[in-house]
Nucleic acid binder design. Structure first.
Lengths: 327, 327
DNA sequence: TTGTACGCGTTATCAG
DNA sequence: CTGATAACGCGTACAA
């Protein structure tokens, strides 16, 4: 209805020039008298900055894009990502930065995501970027600040990132299982094209002692995947006495499969997961805890740093064990 | 690194004026020769429009804000909202519109949301707007296209909305319970400051026959709320033989409470919910199905219409019963 | 300290 | 059909 007031309106009301108004707005040095007058005019006119004009004139970005490289459906399933996103939104909100969530029209294909990324000029937070993502390459090449959630395989030097010490976590939990007397420890891995999947398997190998291929089956981080993998495991290695799943969701599936197969948990077989996701609490799962809140905080810090012009850098968050009823 | 190319660059390469380039970009009439030249220049320069400049110059908004009026934490719990959001993102993505999700720094207070809304100038999709929301009033007053998910109590005439036939749904399910021989049907209501809560209770009253206050307890749409409400119900009306919860989440809580109290479902007491949320499938809950996908489609349509200048309008989605094991 | 004037990239108007 | 050119709202050198 009524046109929004501009800095010109404010300037007129305050009896100063637009330059002065702009300075007040950006915290630059201004005389006390003018400043007061502007402040007053600001509220009396109900001024709200036009972010487009502001950005066009070269101001700091007012938005950050949250870029997902996997189909939305799968994302919904991941409560961890939701938590991270929420935390980041809060933190960025404190900096007056809004989060935009573009979405790929076609699917999860790298090219679809790349097309999306092309229209982005504000800083970007990427999730689940596949190895050598061309979208990430594009962004980085154009000088857009990028922070990756997880190691950006193939672009470690050009974009900042925050990751977890997956290998150590897997090592810790497998060692724990061994310390509890388990000797036939199986594992359900994550997707091997994601860094987490690789590292968690590596940690398993580090700690498991003698490596038996029959005790390793691939998973995809889903409940159903965990279910199927466990059935296969129970078939090809009936004597196993522990299962380490690379994610809590899969571990929950393992729990269900064990129950169906009549195996007592943790009596007959111990089950452990990874992430300390919500479902881990609900099913009383022993798992590896990722400090999600601090993780999100780091993500935000990295982003702000890049925006301020700092060089890309990576940080890895430590993890620890949380022992519950399943192992 | 390298500056993004502008329409000036494109114009130079194509050997035409910026006006012509702009016309091509916006699908306005242009000579075949020029058009071809521009198209070529467009790809050869890798041109990507600057949305800020575009918007500043008066173009159609390229983003839509997804505004939540409740704290983020509660939102995560609501899978329905997530689904809606995802569907809308997809549909809007097809129109080259991105979704931004601002977040209130402080909390769910109406003033916090209002402050947020103040910086919005693009169309808005509001969720869980409380009665007489000042944020919505603000937006509508400034002429911002607003579409509400659910009836925007107090602003029915000024903003578009999509809602469900809550009253009818409640009526249907209570009638169903009666047809199955249930005579002491209790209900756990939703928050009374939300339209859904009010309407679902109204539908219950419509169909329940004789109304007994002892059979009605308030809920808050949460699992815990359903749990507590059911305990109270079982205490104050031990002879009840059915419970209609105003949301599936609460119904799940009711299921748990019944189990703990040793009441068989549906033998001793029938339990029904509302929404047909994910948890309803998992717990085999009889409930009222809301056509979420079509709901989202309507939301998008309404939004696009308002953007095109149409008057605000409301649409109500029909609902139907889905009978499962709980009743 | 403060005011002025220019530039940011597009769209749209107005002549040609 | 096409080419100039004036907005759009704000940041910021530059000048005073």
């Amino acid at each position: 209805m009524s046109r929004r007031s501009t800095i010109y309106d404010v300037a007129r009301v305050a009896g100063v020039s637009v330059g002065t108004v702009s300075r007040v707005l950006n915290g630059h040095p201004v005389g006390a008298a003018s400043r007061a007058a502007v402040q007053r005019a600001l509220v009396s006119t109900g001024y709200v900055a036009n972010q487009h004009a502001r950005r066009l004139a070269g101001a700091r970005p007012a938005t950050v894009a949250f870029l997902h490289c996997v189909p939305g459906d799968r994302l919904l399933a991941d409560a961890n990502v939701n938590t991270l996103q929420l935390d980041c939104r809060r933190a960025l909100g404190d900096e007056d930065i809004m989060m935009v969530t573009p979405v790929a029209g076609g699917g999860p294909s790298d090219t679809a995501v790349r097309a999306l990324a092309a229209r982005l000029d504000d800083p970007v937070l990427v999730f689940s970027a596949p190895r050598d993502s061309t979208a990430v390459a594009d962004l980085a090449g154009r000088g857009v600040p990028v922070v990756s959630c997880g190691v950006p395989l193939g672009h470690e030097r050009r974009v900042s990132y925050v990751t977890t010490d997956d290998r150590d976590g897997a090592q810790q939990i497998v060692s724990y299982l061994r310390s509890r007397g388990r000797r036939r420890i199986a594992t359900i891995t994550g997707p091997m094209d994601l860094p987490g999947g690789v590292q968690r398997l590596a940690g398993y190998r580090d700690a498991v002692g003698t490596f038996d291929p029959a005790l390793v089956v691939p998973g995809d981080y889903t409940f159903e995947g965990g279910l199927a993998a466990t059935r296969q495991l129970l078939r090809q290695a009936p004597d196993l006495d522990a299962i380490f799943a690379a994610s809590d969701t899969m571990a929950a599936g393992a729990l269900a499969a064990c129950e169906q197969a009549g195996r007592q948990v943790p009596g007959d077989v111990a089950v452990a997961g990874f992430d300390d996701a919500k479902i881990a609490t609900q099913t009383r799962l022993t798992t590896v805890r990722i400090p999600w809140h601090r993780y999100a905080a780091q993500l935000t810090i990295q982003l702000l740093r890049r925006m301020a012009g700092d060089e890309p850098s990576g940080v890895v968050m430590p993890v620890d064990l949380v022992i519950r009823a399943s192992a």
